[in-house]
């Protein structure tokens, strides 16, 4: 890929990092007239180790959990200066800083109606600190704080329904996306910034280190998550489901066996059935099945 003036190469992301691809897609779609507030996390660390920065747009990092509030202040200042019409404001963070520690700040931002796009890069655990379980870690995932063992098959709860939580704030646009479908990310970001008000996009981003797959498997693994129904891609506009990525559902086992974090499930049909139920429920709920 060519070097991007808005998200420059030379950053220190791991090989095969889904978040790096997704973040680049987001800022390239949003364009140069954008200000970003970034939570603490992998993306912050690998793009801005002093004295270098990968960002070609104004970018600020304050703390782990407050990018939504910092972005609210940026947006308010731009309004005061009469510059909001021409400038996009993006707040972004990982799944932990979005769904756990930063949920309150995000809820405040959504509820107040700021004209901000919030992007959650969901790699399904606290990867920056060494793969600890977050509120967006899937059911039965083996992480360092939800390890599988004789008494446990990993994370005991399904993912917190963040898109639905965002939707419940009555905001005009909520979407999910995947690092496996980069053009789809860009289309959704462009649509989001064309809409005034708070927007929420959650992007599934594989982490080879935490998910334990080969670094060249990032795209196939991301696509498998979508194709088996475990990561449904959809769009809600003004509270109404307006689009979903149709799939010919593959069994979840194909997705699970591609990653070390689910290895403990492979000889346990009972647990695989529970994961399949989650996928089947998504397929029904979001009407994902393609017509034959």
């Amino acid at each position: 890929m060519e070097n991007s003036p808005l998200f420059k190469s030379g950053h220190t992301a791991c090989a095969g990092c889904g978040q790096a691809i997704a973040a680049r897609m987001v800022i390239e779609a949003a364009g140069a007239n954008t200000i970003i507030a970034n939570n603490t996390g992998c993306l912050e660390v690998f793009t801005t180790k002093y004295p270098e920065t990968a960002w070609g747009v104004p970018w600020i990092h304050s703390l782990f959990e407050n990018s939504a509030a910092v972005a609210s202040g940026i947006e308010a200042a731009l309004k005061y200066l009469g510059k909001k019409e021409n400038i996009n404001v993006i707040a972004q963070g990982g799944d932990g800083s979005t769904a756990d520690i930063g949920l309150q700040a995000l809820s405040g931002m959504l509820e107040r109606g700021h004209d901000i796009l919030y992007v959650c890069y969901d790699n399904e655990a606290y990867m920056n600190t060494g793969v600890q379980r977050s509120g967006l870690t899937p059911f039965d995932t083996n992480t360092t704080t939800s390890p599988s063992g004789s008494q446990s098959s990993g994370n005991i709860r399904p993912k917190k329904p963040m898109p639905e939580i965002a939707l419940a704030h009555g905001i005009p646009y909520v979407a999910t996306a995947s690092a496996g479908l980069p053009q789809d990310i860009q289309r959704k970001v462009k649509k989001a910034i064309s809409i005034k008000g708070p927007k929420y996009i959650q992007i599934h981003v594989p982490c080879p280190l935490g998910w334990r797959h080969e670094t060249d498997q990032m795209l196939p693994v991301a696509k498998l998550a979508v194709d088996c129904g475990l990561y449904p891609l959809f769009e809600y506009e003004n509270g109404v489901l307006t689009g979903q990525k149709k799939i010919v559902p593959k069994p979840v086992e194909e997705y699970l066996k591609a990653q070390g974090r689910f290895k403990h499930l492979l000889n346990n049909p009972e647990e695989i059935k529970k994961v399949q139920d989650i996928a089947d429920n998504n397929i029904m709920k979001y009407n994902l099945k393609a017509q034959a």
């Binding site: 200000i35 600020i60 910092v70 972005a71 609210s72 202040g73 200042a77 005061y80 700040a105």
Partner: peptide, 14 residues
């Protein structure tokens, strides 16, 4: 926490 974060963001915007 957000009050301080909002003024932080505003101040950084000039």
């Amino acid at each position: 926490h957000s009050a301080a974060s909002v003024v932080l963001g505003g101040s950084a915007t000039g």
